[in-house]
């Protein structure tokens, strides 16, 4: 085992994994994290705590992760390259490990022009791939990026993101290989709505043999309304939302119920794709939907390993 992570244990015992997502609040209110954590407890193997997603200032991933773990969840903390240089990142990761956090998702980060501080300076000292390499070396070689030795190393189960619907499409599986080479242990994909394109990407992934060494979690998001899908299609990078799904949500009498059905169906379908090791359920500002989705998809109770 590379870490003491529950997620790693579930995945390495070849059980179909479920992770969820918890967005920290735009405030210093720990109770928001606790409330959301309560919805997710028992419904997933680990929960992703976003790091100022879409470049909007929120409670930090590490601190919200600590609160979530106090509530009995295992967090996957996120680290983007947008806001910190290698000094800040390594420092925060030493702290995160010292606080008992076990899983780390390494991301480039959305550009700050999306967020609420578009006038900020961005960092991008590293990119997601050099970040992965650095974090793996901290764990496996016990060295900082500068090659100095670390006495007590941070031991993370290391994750990365994959964006099967972004361009250039033919490069997307190759980029996954780069992430594997750089040190990724598990992968969370962008939200899957276009199953056909996703299957094609997975085929390319299998041709490179990556699914044998990487645990790939397919991204699942229950749509709450047709409007949300339209917004995602238009404005969220890396999204591919088929028009049929939008019309299905438009004609639904109870859109939230329909959204949950869509998510459950999607889980059942991605589960049949060879090389999918689990799902990452991102119920955006709708954390209470996760246990319902997991339950209906037959994924509860979560295994104790």
């Amino acid at each position: 085992m590379k870490s003491k992570s529950n997620l790693e244990k579930v995945l390495s015992s070849r059980k179909f994994a479920v992770t969820a997502e918890l967005g920290p609040p735009k405030s210093a209110d720990a109770n928001v994290v606790r409330t959301k954590a309560a919805y997710l407890k028992g419904a997933c193997d680990a929960v992703n705590i976003t790091d100022c997603q879409t470049a909007i200032v929120r409670m930090s991933s590490i601190s919200a992760g600590v609160i979530a773990s106090q509530e009995g969840l295992e967090p996957v903390i996120q680290m983007t390259c947008r806001d910190r240089n290698r000094i800040g990142i390594q420092s925060d990761l030493l702290g995160a490990a010292a606080l008992g956090l076990q899983n780390l998702l390494c991301l480039t980060g959305d550009h700050q022009s999306f967020g609420n501080h578009p006038q900020s300076k961005n960092v991008h000292d590293l990119d997601s791939i050099s970040l992965l390499d650095m974090v793996r070396n901290m764990r496996d070689k016990k060295i900082f990026q500068c090659a100095e030795e670390i006495e007590v190393e941070p031991r993370f189960f290391i994750g990365a993101a994959a964006s099967p619907f972004s361009d250039p499409l033919e490069f997307r599986a190759l980029r996954l290989k780069k992430k594997y080479d750089a040190g990724a242990d598990f992968i969370q994909t962008q939200i899957v709505y276009n199953l056909e394109k996703f299957s094609l990407w997975m085929k390319m992934v299998r041709e490179l043999g990556l699914e044998r060494n990487l645990y790939i979690l397919a991204g699942i998001t229950p749509p709450k309304s047709a409007g949300m899908l339209k917004y995602m299609k238009k404005f969220v990078p890396g999204q591919d939302v088929p028009d049929e799904l939008i019309s299905r949500m438009e004609s639904a009498k109870d859109p939230e119920e329909e959204g949950i059905k869509v998510a459950v169906e999607m889980i059942e379908k991605v589960r049949q794709i060879e090389g999918i090791a689990g799902v990452h359920i991102m119920a955006i500002e709708w954390e209470e939907a996760v246990s319902e989705i997991a339950n209906r998809a037959g994924l509860l109770p979560r295994p104790i390993v």
């Binding site: 390259c81 947008r82 480039t108 980060g109 959305d110 550009h111 022009s113 999306f114 961005n122 991008h124 990119d127 997601s128 791939i129 050099s130 993101a161 964006s163 972004s166 361009d167 250039p168 490069f171 190759l174 980029r175 780069k178 750089a182 962008q190 990078p237 890396g238």
Partner: peptide
């Protein structure tokens, strides 16, 4: 926009940057 050195991020679509 992010000075990436290892290929495009997920924000690349139809040849255009996410920004």
């Amino acid at each position: 926009a992010k000075s990436l050195l290892n290929g495009p991020c997920g924000g690349s679509k139809d040849g255009i940057c996410e920004i």
